[in-house]
Amino acid sequence: MKRVAALLFIAALAVLLLYVVSRMPPMGDPETPTATHVIPRYLEKAEEETHTVNVITGVILNYRGYDTMGEVTVIFCALAAVLAVLGRERRGVIHGFVDRSEVPSSTIVRTMVRFIVPFIILFSVYTILHGETSPGGGFQGGAIIGGSMIIFTTIFGLYESSRRIPLKVRAPLEGAAVMGFFLVGTLGLVGGGNFLTYAWPRVAQDLHPSLVVWLTVLVEVGIGLGGAMVLTSILFAMIREEEEIATVS
């Protein structure tokens, strides 16, 4: 009965939404409101105004930088939330041993992971640093590092990977993204602009472009490092609990 009611509700919702779709502006048309209102200025002026070749990065970090600051805070908040729920590992305590699972992974897998993880990290560094000229950016790079940590931790166990990125390295870097934003934002104030102004009005004109690019890269690196560390810490917190389950049951 409940299922039928749910199905009917969903069907009604689907019909409503499909009706809306049939009334929406046509897809891919260059005359739609989305394509004519705010966008032309971004596409035409982004390069000279934000000094980033990739318009998306310009929008993320510069025009809508405040959103991204909120987003970075969301990641930090997620870490704080996960740690509040699961608890954080203590300093100086080793959680889990080399390999607690019943099946130690084979030599083939270990060798392959050892071989591939450096490439993944290299790729992520490239993604972070080239955010303003090509597809990519801090979040993507950070997520790739987080992914490589997941691979590494599943194969080698928590002990090995938390020895490579110990708590005293992770903890200070977790807030790097928010702090980077706040730093750049306040620098904009010092330069006479509003919060999150990259191109300081008071700084000499010829210094301008390179300075803006440097600030952009600084923020990108902050986001990348912060994101990677947050993802790693969340992973460690979850895996640690998993191992405790294994010992309890």
Binding site: T34, A35, Y42, V59, I75, A78, V82, F139, M238
Partner: peptide, 30 residues
Amino acid sequence: MVNPIPQALILTGIVVAVSVTALALSMVIL
């Protein structure tokens, strides 16, 4: 060029989704 704004917004959306999923999964563990 295609519209860059939705892509920029969705980056935020993805981050939010990942965060909520991480929190929900850690609650599932507990």
